[in-house]
Design a protein around this nucleic acid. Structure first.
Lengths: 110, 110
DNA sequence: TACATTAATCGTAATATTGCAATAAAGCAA
DNA sequence: TTGCTTTATTGCAATATTACGATTAATGTA
């Protein structure tokens, strides 16, 4: 059906999955890395750097904006994007906490 | 087109996106959490715990197996799954390294 | 052997994602 | 104003994902 049954899962599980989905495309990873490298970057420069069509980059930027980890500011005809530190740190905490899980039991089978 | 243009990105960017894609479903997050909690878990118990149909859980387990972060051992008619620590730690490092990025520049716009 | 139990696979329907051409919108420059 | 530049949006085609019923395969049990 292509539709995820979110109601079967708790809020944390859904939040982790939602964040991971935004990270689940190399173009969005590349955009994030570029914004960290330059701190700020105009949309058109991202299009040149990454090599996908302008509407495609715009769509990826929109998903990153929806999650809140980037923000954009209009500068004339351009839009300058950068990382939203507050949201980035919250997101980082959520994922690092998940990744730092340890085995709770001694039982094992494989 | 629904198909990702992986050739436009470097290996690290594609690896991060691939891992994130596996984490991009709450059922797979729930399976991982359950395996950490119990250390080992039979497929049928995961089906009962999570409440999706058996073929659906089996499909999610397959994706986790493909990435390598879980492994399964046949025990009679059951299959017992657990976390593959080595792969989990590699995956953790890849993502934590990405999440720990810092701003490289002083320039800013927003 | 026959039957039950468990998990994987197959096939399919519904929905989501990716990518881009075409277009719209918004600002600047002459 | 007109034309240019830049980015967002629309619409669509191709592909991927999610979910599950039906079936198969493999093992254990009577």
């Amino acid at each position: 059906m292509g539709v995820t049954k979110k109601e079967k899962f708790n809020q944390e599980q859904n939040e982790i999955a939602t964040v991971a989905k935004v990270f689940a495309h190399p173009a969005r990873i590349a955009i994030i890395q570029q914004l960290f490298k330059l701190n700020a970057c105009v949309c058109g420069d991202l299009v040149n750097e990454i090599g996908l069509a302008q509407p495609t980059i715009s769509q990826h930027l929109k998903e990153l904006k929806n999650l809140g980890i980037i923000k954009g500011e209009v500068e004339g005809t351009s839009v300058c994007y950068c990382i939203n530190d507050e949201v980035w740190n919250k997101t980082k905490k959520l994922l690092v906490n998940f990744l730092n899980q340890n085995i709770h039991s001694e039982k094992n089978c494989c």
